[in-house]
Amino acid sequence: MSSSDIFLSETIGTAVLILLGGGVCAAVTFKRSKAYAAGWVAIAFGWGFAVLTGAYIAVQSGAHLNPAVTLALAIKGGTEWSQVPVYFAGQLLGAMIGAVLVWLTYYGQFRAHLSDPEVLAAHNGQEGMVDKATAPKAGPVLGIFSTGPEIRNAVQNLVTEIIATIVLVLAILNLGLSDNGKGVGPIGSLLVALVVVGIGLSLGGPTGYAINPVRDLGPRIVHALLPLPNKGGSDWGYAWIPVVGPLIGGAIAGGIYQVAFA
């Protein structure tokens, strides 16, 4: 497979992953959405189905959709190191495209939400709803685009992302590669999607389980660039954790596989 084929496949697959994953976050967040306040279970299953759909679309390239997976497969030997940057580039571009598509899909909801007096009062610390001194720097819709911790502790947050990513990547590596040697194949994609749901339900509470550097970084960049009024900051002080944590987790998982299962 050529580098252009890999790049295009990963771009489209990751775009769909983020469109559906970010879409469920938007659906649960916005009051003018039919899925408003559906809760964490809906988000966990939504992201699982997002992974499944993106993986089926990107099956030609092995459907990595995640730099942590690409890194682990390179360590394992299923992906050539020369192709790793191509995978990374396609995944990041796709994540950004997917985030823009979420914004377009929920354009009216974004406008209504960010002009809602209650939302503005809470974000600005007015009417006693939020103390300006303790209000988070992140804007009121950042959670639709990227992750954030419930308790801000860099060490704990990093460790949480590492552990969750190790679980994901070990499951992927032990499913066995498809015939092209680049991914897990269609049936494996279904099982990976269920693993993602399980990770979300069990390990997602502390940080929102990025477990994928571009899942967080690409949409965070889009949040910073989009002309959203009253959106607040993009919380770049935290942004390194959902990038570095999954990459470390992917590398560790690849090493564990080589030692324990290869």
Rank of each mutant, 00 (worst) to 15 (best):
L114V: 10
V51D: 00
F261C: 04
T14Y: 04
N66T: 01
P229Y: 05
V184A: 12
L17R: 03
T207E: 03
G48T: 03
W81V: 12
L158E: 05
G233C: 08
L20Q: 06
G198L: 10
S202Q: 07
G208S: 10
G176K: 10
M96C: 13
N174E: 12
N157W: 02
A89T: 12
N212D: 10
Y107K: 14
G185V: 06
E150I: 15
V195H: 03
G143H: 06
I187Y: 13
L73V: 12
A99L: 07
V24D: 05
G48A: 05
A55E: 07
G176D: 10
R32H: 13
G139D: 10
N230V: 08
I252L: 15
L93C: 11
D116P: 03
G23P: 03
S3D: 13
F261Q: 09
L168C: 01
W240L: 12
P186Q: 02
R152E: 13
E150W: 13
V222M: 13
T147F: 01
G39N: 07
G21K: 00
D5Y: 11
G108E: 09
P149R: 06
L175P: 04
G208L: 04
M96N: 05
P246N: 04
G21F: 00
V244Y: 10
A210F: 01
L190C: 11
V196M: 12
V41L: 14
W47S: 00
A58F: 02
D179S: 14
G78C: 10
G185D: 08
Q83H: 12
W47N: 02
L52I: 11
A154R: 11
L173Y: 03
I151A: 13
A171P: 02
G200N: 02
G198P: 09
Q91Y: 06
M129Q: 14
V243E: 00
A133I: 07
N180P: 08
A260R: 11
V169H: 01
Y257W: 13
G255Q: 04
G98Y: 07
G125Y: 09
R32P: 00
G188P: 05
V69T: 10
V69N: 11
L177P: 01
